[in-house]
Design a protein around this nucleic acid. Sequence first.
DNA 1: CCGCGATCCTGGGGGC
DNA 2: TGCCCCCAGGATCGCG
Length: 303
Amino acid sequence: MPELPEVETVKEGLKKILKPDVRIVSVQFLRKDIRSPLPFKSIDTIIGQKIISIERRAKYIVIELGGAIVISHLGMTGTWRVETSTKKLKTHDHVVLGLSDKRFLIYNDPRRFGVFDIIPKTKFATDKRFRELGPEPLSSDFHFDYLWAKSRKKQVPVKSFLMDQRIVVGVGNIYVCEALFMAGVSPTLPAGKLKAGQIDGLIDAIQKILKQSIESGGSSISDYKGVDEKDGSYQDNHMVYGRKGEPCRKCSHPISVKVISGRSTFWCVKCQKTLQRTSNEPRDSKNNISGKSLPKTSRTQRS
DNA sequence: CCGCGATCCTGGGGGC
DNA sequence: TGCCCCCAGGATCGCG
């Protein structure tokens, strides 16, 4: 479900509710586990604590309190909402956080693929869920030299490669399909065969699409909602995702669908060729002395 | 080490 | 209306 734009939207929604002066006054777990066991033993470490910060790392929401850190991952169907009373609990509500302003933050997750955990601050840096994550796609760490080096010799389809959270975080099944379309790259192309221009194009496409989607409050396909319980609207801008058989918005050719790495993959076979124009010679990253991506203008002109 | 498929769950939609 | 099958925004595990 939620990919980076959706998690970012939820995080921003939580920020509006969890002002720094609001404290957590009670914690209630309505079952033993979701994807992983709920942290009954750590409840004491967050009771009475003030919120210091709320951040997003990859698809995780990270809430820093006085002595501990709360981490929340929405899996496929997780949502957070606010209620003024615990009489308004619904099926699949699993976590209820009582706040000092008398409201309740409630985590609901029908499929229970999500994560809710509490860890000591000192364990955050070494936590295995965060240790091996790749760079944030909207940060300056996600640049040509990095992605070029990571992709060399990789046989996996570029689609699986970009969804691998060790390569780059936050990109899931929807946005990888959209980014591949924007960049004109076939999802089946082995990552190691990407040409320099395609690497540049994919970085640009991922960043543009994620930013646009954040602006729209994310994509709401079925379960996803913001904390304010409003739907996002980026699904209206999808060029390929969920459009099997419908005409391509660029060339009218029917959109194809195929399972790649276990997920439905939507693309236009005419706009996204496996073998790309040869105008872009692979670039030797060692020659890029600055160690940074070329300026946008220069990249755009080359491709 | 790498790549792939199965798996954890529930609910909604389509086909018959 | 009902039933059954398939599908779904993710991540991990174990196999070859």
